[in-house]
């Protein structure tokens, strides 16, 4: 077996136990390392997908078997699709009228809540000063930034993004219960640290500036959400927003 064939099998059956496969792995250090990296990635995927199983799952399955089998048959008879169709049509007619006005109002409310949450989060972050402790390799920080943004559907072009300056910190965090996972980066600005959040959700529309406490902020709608950029007063937020806009291609 040659190295090419070994790696092909490694990627399709990492647990292969065929003699020629195992033999090659024992003889070729590069391939052994490659197989290990494939296995390590599988383990990470497995751990990332592993969820706790409810203790009483089996008991509930058995209970359901006894209690619901008959009831299910009766319900199926009653729940004819046309009944749902009729109800849905009526609901659509009633709600369509109020939908447009609600949309504008809801966007304004969303933007207000988002900026408040982002500034609060930034204030807490600055008090803790967590990111200052990070002195990671710039290439690793850039790779991590790319990986995190890719998870949100953004393809980062490194050359373009370099203009943004030093990336001090990048992670996925929770901004609050409303927003789900959020990309959270801190970069070095001209007036101190600048915090950047990327949040999925209702798009704010055109670029919006805001001021809260000692912070200036800017909202930039891209992809399927918004960047919220927060820096100290007088920070070059427009220039940072320009860089983010130009350096990231979004999968929509």
């Amino acid at each position: 077996m040659n190295c090419l064939e070994f790696r092909r099998i490694s990627l399709s059956e990492p647990g292969n136990r065929a003699q020629d496969y195992l033999g090659h792995r024992n003889q070729c250090e590069d391939c052994a390392r490659y197989a290990k990296s494939v296995n390590d990635l599988d383990k990470k995927i497995e751990n990332a997908l592993r969820v706790p199983v409810p203790d009483d799952l089996a008991a509930r399955i058995k209970l359901r078997q006894v209690l619901l089998a008959e009831q299910d048959n009766r319900m199926t008879e009653w729940l004819r699709p046309w009944r749902f169709g009729l109800a849905a049509s009526l609901l659509l007619v009633v709600t369509l009228g109020g939908l447009f006005g609600y949309e504008v109002h809801a966007t304004n409310q969303y933007v207000e809540r988002l900026t408040v949450s982002a500034v609060d989060h930034t204030r807490i972050e600055r008090q803790g000063n967590h990111f200052v402790a990070e002195h990671a390799d710039p290439a690793k920080q850039m790779l991590r930034f790319k990986q995190v943004l890719a998870a949100f559907g953004g393809n980062v072009m490194e050359d373009e993004l370099a203009a943004i300056g030093e990336i001090l910190h990048i992670q996925v965090c929770a901004l609050g219960p409303t927003y789900g996972p959020v990309a959270h980066a801190v970069i070095r600005g001209q007036q101190g640290a600048v915090t950047i959040y990327y949040v999925f959700g209702r798009k704010a529309g055109s670029r919006k500036q805001f001021e809260r406490g000692r912070f200036d902020g800017m909202l930039l709608s891209v992809g399927n959400g918004n960047f919220t950029i927060i820096g100290n007063r007088g920070e070059r937020l427009s220039s940072i927003a320009d860089t983010l806009e130009q350096a990231i291609v979004w999968k929509i």
Binding site: K44, I45, A48, L49, V51, V148, A150, A151, V172
Partner: peptide
Amino acid sequence: FDTSTEAFVLRQAL
């Protein structure tokens, strides 16, 4: 699910 950044990135890639 595990809510660490690494696990999140892996699941999103998947």
